[in-house]
Structure formats: C-alpha cells, structure tokens
Simulated scan of single mutants.
Amino acid sequence: MEYALRVCQKRDFMYLKEIYLECVELHQKNGYFLKKLPDAPEIFLQYVEELMESADALVLVAAGDKGVMGYCISKVGEKPPVYADVRYGLIDNLAVAEEYQRKGVGEQLFQESVNWFKEKGLSRIELEVAVFNPKSVNFWKKMGFKTFMNLMEWEM
C-alpha cells in the first residue's frame, strides 16, 4: 500500500466527507451521539476549507491510488493568558478510513503534524478522544498521550 502525505486540496473533499460520515456512523453505533445538524457534512467541509486558508492550521491527507485514506486537522490553540504556555498544538481531528486503519497511516499523519507544531515553536499538544472508542484511545496512548483532564457533560 503506497501513499503520500500532502496538504489537503479541494479535490479531496469527497473523500473527507466519506471518512467523516464513517466516523459519525461509528459514534452512533457505539451509542455516543453528539447532535449534528442535517447538513453537518457540508458544514464540516466549509470548516476544512476555512482552515486551509489559515496560517495557524494544517489539514493533511494521506493519499494513494484509490484516493484519500485519512486526514489530520491540526491547529494552534490558545489558552487564557494566565498560563505559562499560552499557545499549544491542537489535534482537532484525525481519522483514517476503516480499511486503512492499523497500517501506519494515522501515525504518519500525526508525526507530520508534530513536525508542523515544532516549526510553529510549540512544545505541547492536546486533543479530545471519545472514551467509548477504545481503538482511538489506544492509538493516542501508543502515540504517547496521557489523560490529564476529563471532559464531562450533563444534559438538561
């Protein structure tokens, strides 16, 4: 399986939409469903397009002969000015189509994002991961991440 990492282009959007929908379906199947708008896939692509224009964001894709296998959205995040490290790296979203998972695609996308964060002078990376998705939790632990805070919700 050969593929290359590159910056996302608009021609990749149909693949990003497919992978996005696959992730939504996985979340629904596992009983975790953040309410989404009916046109969420199109809004997601608009969001990606906006990020592609930003100097503080990087949208990478892993692309091969059959199209895009996965993507990683990385951004520069900012904390309130009371913290010593105000700016940090934020992995907004990393997703790999199921048929290409466990083949190193996600790890390479992540490593390329790490390089980009280093070029930006950042020394810390944060992300959110769904606790109901052990495959994803284990992936991030393998990449060296550890839990430092729990995100909690309460529906009224």
Rank of each mutant, 00 (worst) to 15 (best):
123 S>T: 10
7 V>F: 08
17 K>V: 05
112 E>C: 15
144 G>P: 04
99 E>I: 09
151 L>G: 14
20 Y>K: 02
41 P>D: 07
98 E>R: 15
76 V>D: 00
98 E>P: 05
18 E>A: 09
53 E>S: 14
6 R>V: 08
149 M>A: 07
121 G>M: 08
110 F>V: 11
108 Q>F: 07
107 E>T: 14
30 N>E: 15
30 N>C: 14
6 R>I: 06
55 A>T: 05
147 T>A: 09
108 Q>K: 12
94 L>V: 15
61 V>N: 01
67 G>I: 03
85 D>Y: 11
34 L>C: 04
54 S>N: 13
64 G>K: 02
76 V>Y: 00
134 P>R: 08
3 Y>S: 02
146 K>P: 08
136 S>R: 05
38 P>Y: 09
88 Y>S: 06
45 L>W: 00
118 K>N: 03
54 S>I: 13
85 D>K: 11
95 A>G: 04
75 K>T: 11
42 E>M: 14
74 S>F: 04
12 D>H: 12
120 K>E: 03
47 Y>N: 15
44 F>H: 03
124 R>L: 04
67 G>N: 04
154 W>P: 14
153 E>W: 12
156 M>I: 07
41 P>G: 05
48 V>Y: 04
50 E>G: 13
29 K>C: 14
140 W>A: 05
81 P>G: 07
119 E>A: 06
2 E>D: 12
32 Y>Q: 09
135 K>R: 15
55 A>Q: 09
11 R>F: 08
70 G>S: 10
124 R>S: 05
111 Q>W: 08
79 K>H: 08
51 L>K: 11
108 Q>N: 13
34 L>A: 06
64 G>F: 05
86 V>S: 11
37 L>S: 07
150 N>W: 00
55 A>D: 09
111 Q>D: 10
77 G>D: 03
122 L>T: 02
77 G>I: 02
142 K>W: 13
77 G>P: 02
151 L>R: 14
140 W>D: 03
96 V>N: 00
139 F>W: 15
142 K>Y: 15
156 M>P: 13
70 G>C: 04
56 D>F: 13
40 A>M: 13
127 L>T: 03
53 E>V: 13
80 P>H: 12
73 I>P: 00
28 Q>D: 14
142 K>V: 05
152 M>W: 01
133 N>F: 04
112 E>W: 06
136 S>N: 08
154 W>F: 15
136 S>W: 02
155 E>A: 12
115 N>P: 08
110 F>R: 03
150 N>I: 03
109 L>V: 12
119 E>T: 06
77 G>N: 07
24 V>D: 03
45 L>R: 01
25 E>F: 09
136 S>H: 08
144 G>A: 07
68 V>E: 02
120 K>Y: 00
135 K>I: 15
36 K>R: 12
117 F>T: 00
14 M>Y: 10
116 W>I: 06
69 M>V: 13
131 V>C: 09
134 P>C: 02
144 G>N: 04
114 V>H: 04
126 E>W: 11
52 M>P: 01
37 L>D: 04
